[in-house]
Every structure is written in structure tokens, then in C-alpha cells.
Design a protein around this nucleic acid. Structure first.
Ligand SMILES: [Zn+2]
Ligand SMILES: [Zn+2]
Ligand SMILES: [Zn+2]
Ligand SMILES: [Zn+2]
Lengths: 139, 139
DNA sequence: GGTGCCATTGATAATCAATATCATTAAGAT
DNA sequence: ATCTTAATGATATTGATTATCAATGGCACC
């Protein structure tokens, strides 16, 4: 069982105003947001920046395992700051509210299934989309 | 428990040479292929066509639940003709060879997990990527 | 504080998959 | 054969993301 990857800051990377602004925006948000969303959030917080800068920050954070990326079947990628470790998401299809799901039994199932078919080094993606209680009430 | 969607041909759609060529290409392939791949496969089989036509055929087939679509984190969407019913995939990250996975226990787990968090109408996506035996041998 | 190196930034252009437009072609019913 | 209308292909367009590159600014060292 390989330990989770360390989350050291990338070698040679610098702490800048823009990057902290993006991290702040992500930290304050409980839902997934697009790069454009984050640009606006940062701007509203007094830190306007170019969209390319947002993308670059997200790229770095993603490489450092500081954010989770969701690739919906259509549209922009969505980003969220998550807790450490492997997990999946339960996402409200209306409001975007996301709950982290970590389940040992599921992980075992994945590994067992892959091995049964002779596949090694199984990686996987799993996302559950539903309607949350709030949105079911007022949706 | 809603029954699986019917797979009637779309109302007003016509059977054409190009569409059968795409269906043939998909049927002969055991792996996922991009729209460009399928254009080439159809062309090699003597049925050249514009890429837009390929996309339109795939759109129709996808809407009719005749093909499964994979959206890798980067790059083009991948298409594959699948058997009827809800299932997931075990995909070789090298050769693209895909195995269908249908597991009642997993489906139950998804529904239970969603319900536990107050989410209704849970949809989900799950793909497992690994290295198949053949590719593990020859790298 | 000042200096220098080099990562970062922003403006802009480029990519690339996928879709829209629209005149032309052809399926298939009568 | 004729007619209605879906399908097609050439082309332009969209939209997200990445590349380019000159100018800026962290920050390590003096
Ligand atoms: Zn909601
Ligand atoms: Zn997992
Ligand atoms: Zn393989
Ligand atoms: Zn399933």
C-alpha cells in the first residue's frame, strides 16, 4: 500500500498575491467552481487577475494535489479544495454542494474487480450526482 | 426502479450509408475510439465522410443509448458500442481494451451512499483504468 | 537598502474538440 | 416519378484551455 503523495510546495515555486487569492477563494468555497468563477471570486475579494493566471494557479495546485478537479461531460472543469487523501464526491446537480466520500469497501471492490480481470495498477474515477435536500425542497 | 430506457430509433431519423458505416466500425471494434478514429475506420472500410457527419451519428447513437461515451480528463471523447443496460468499464490505459462491468452490489452501494446523505435521484460515473495482461507483458 | 536571477504575470495569439450554418443531396413515403 | 424533409459536407464559429513573450516582481544574497 503506497502512502499518499507528499504535499510539498513545488520546487522553485514562489508565494504570490494571486496564488494566495485563488487558494483563499477555494478555501472559502464549499462547492466546486470553474476557473472563471474563481477569477470573479478573487476579483470580488480585491485581487483581480488574468484568466491565464487562474489556470496556471489551478494547474500548480492540482499537480500538488491541493485541489480536486471534476471534468463534467460538457463544459468547464470544476475545482475544489479538498481534504488530504483519496476520496470521491457526492455532488448536487443543482447547487454544486459537494460531500466527500471515502469508503474502504468501495476501494477494495475496485481493486478486486480489476485484479479479477488481470488488470494491474488500477486507478479509478467515481462521482455521484444527485439532488440535495435543500434543492429537492425548493428546486 | 425505473426500467432501462427503450432503444427505439429516434423518430424521423433515416437509415443512411454513413450511419451504418459508423455503427459497423463501432461494432467491429472492441475498444473505445475517438470520432477521428471512427472517421478513419469508416474511410478504410470504403465509406469516407465528413467529420461533422461522424459527430452527428455519434450524437444520435448516444442519445439512443446505442453507444457509451467516455470523457477522459484530457483529449477527445471516446465511443464504444456496448451491450444493453447500465454498466461501467475497465479500460486498459495502454491499448484501450475495455471490459464491461455490471455489479449489483456496487449499484446498491451508490444508492445507499446517496440516500445516507439526503441526495435523491443519484446518477453516477465510474471508470477503472489499469494495465491489461497483454500490455503488462510487452510494456 | 540595493542587485540579480528567474519565476510569475498579463495581453495576445494559438489549439483543439465540438457545434452551428446553410446550400445541396438523397431517403423514403405517396 | 414526385415531394417532403432529414442528412450531408464545406465552412465558419464557439468555447475552454494552453502557448508565447515582453515586462514585472519574489526572494536569496550581499
Ligand atoms: Zn443542492
Ligand atoms: Zn476511490
Ligand atoms: Zn492493454
Ligand atoms: Zn453503475
Amino acid at each position: 500500500m503506497a502512502p499518499e503523495a507528499e504535499r510539498l510546495p513545488l520546487a522553485g515555486s514562489r508565494a504570490t498575491r494571486r496564488r494566495s487569492a485563488i487558494i483563499d477563494a477555494l478555501t472559502n468555497a464549499s462547492t466546486f467552481h470553474s476557473a472563471r468563477d474563481l477569477q470573479k471570486l478573487a476579483s470580488d475579494a480585491g485581487h483581480p487577475m488574468a484568466l491565464s493566471t487562474v489556470y496556471r494557479a489551478l494547474q500548480a495546485l492540482s499537480a500538488a494535489n491541493e485541489v480536486d478537479v471534476l471534468h463534467p461531460s460538457c463544459g468547464e472543469a470544476l475545482y475544489r479544495r479538498c481534504t488530504l487523501g483519496h476520496h470521491h464526491h457526492l455532488v448536487c446537480r443543482q447547487c454544486g454542494q459537494a460531500t466527500e466520500i471515502a469508503d474502504e469497501a468501495l476501494e477494495k471492490w475496485v481493486e478486486r474487480t480489476a485484479n479479477q480481470h488481470g488488470f494491474t495498477e488500477p486507478h479509478h474515477t467515481l462521482e455521484i450526482f444527485g439532488t440535495c435536500q435543500e434543492c429537492a425542497k425548493f428546486g
